[in-house]
């Protein structure tokens, strides 16, 4: 775990620097922060809150992505043992990837990767 000590130090330094920047700007900034500024969309004030249920038209892509993302969890440790396990490791992994890619091709054919 000691290898993570420098990481913690770097995190601390980064946070201290960010805090220092905020502190500096508190001194150097012209005027205190303003609040309740109207958001910008071209000059007219908003009539509705922008927070809304956003129409995520690329939702099917997220599903395909999640499948692959899970696969990555297997692939990281796999890299360490390829030559130790031998050809069977390569065959199994790329068969698995091949199946996933077939899924991608299916999703593509169904139009999941285009949303305009």
């Amino acid at each position: 775990m000691s290898q993570f000590v420098p990481v913690l130090i770097a995190l601390g330094v980064a946070l201290v620097l960010v805090a220092a920047l905020y502190a500096l700007s508190a001194v150097t900034a012209t005027g205190r922060p303003v609040s309740e500024v109207a958001p910008f969309a071209g000059g007219l004030p908003p009539t509705h809150h922008a927070f809304s249920r956003f129409h995520v038209r690329w939702y099917p892509v997220t599903m395909v992505f999640l499948a692959f993302d899970m696969e990555m969890i297997f692939m990281y440790p796999w890299t360490l043992v390829v030559s130790r396990v031998g050809p069977s490791a390569v065959i199994e992994m790329f068969l698995f990837l091949g199946i996933l890619l077939a899924g991608v091709v299916y999703a593509w054919r169904e139009g999941a990767l285009r949303w305009t």
Binding site: A41, G42, G43, L44, P46, T47, H48, H49, A50, F51, S52, R53, F54, H55
Partner: peptide, 24 residues
């Protein structure tokens, strides 16, 4: 300000419809 309200979507879904004035 009110929240965006439901409205028909071009794909036939009921989704939030947000009126926005863009420009000038």
């Amino acid at each position: 300000l009110p929240m965006a309200d439901l409205g028909d979507d071009r794909d036939g879904l009921m989704l939030d419809q947000l009126p926005v004035a863009l420009g000038p």
